[in-house]
Amino acid sequence: MMAHLILRVTIKLLFAPIIIFALYVQFHGDYGPGGGFQAGVIFAAAFVLHALGFGIDETKKVLPPKVLPWLMVIGVLFYAGTGVATLLLGENFLDYDILQPDSHHHAGQHIGIILVELGVGIAVASTMLTIFYHFAGREPEIRDEDW
């Protein structure tokens, strides 16, 4: 249990800041570099780090593999649904201006971009974790001499 103690403590310390950073990248994408793709990957990287330090079974308790396919679908539908919503409101597919038609500073564009980026982030994070779970889940556990 005391094996890889330094690694495990470091991972515990880093886990929350990585998640916060992912959220920052996600929602600050309008103003600085970043966006849904990068945020999704950073979010997934936090869980991958957890799995590397504590074993994939511990991570699967935190984030069960069964919810991931649902999150993948929700992310894609979030994106496409934003487009369908603008379509139903009477504009072109993904023409966000209709979301706030009376705004003088294009608030519709802001809302649309944030919604779409959220869809991207959810889809990318869950897809990356699905791929990782399926690759890593095929080997029982990394043996100590393989480190």
Binding site: G29, D30, Y31, G32, P33, G35, L94, Y96, H105, H106, Q109, H110, G112, I113, V116, E117
Partner: peptide
């Protein structure tokens, strides 16, 4: 009207 042109091109 967002500062990051990359995001504007990518998402809008």
């Amino acid at each position: 009207e967002i500062p990051n042109i990359v995001t504007a091109v990518l998402a809008s």
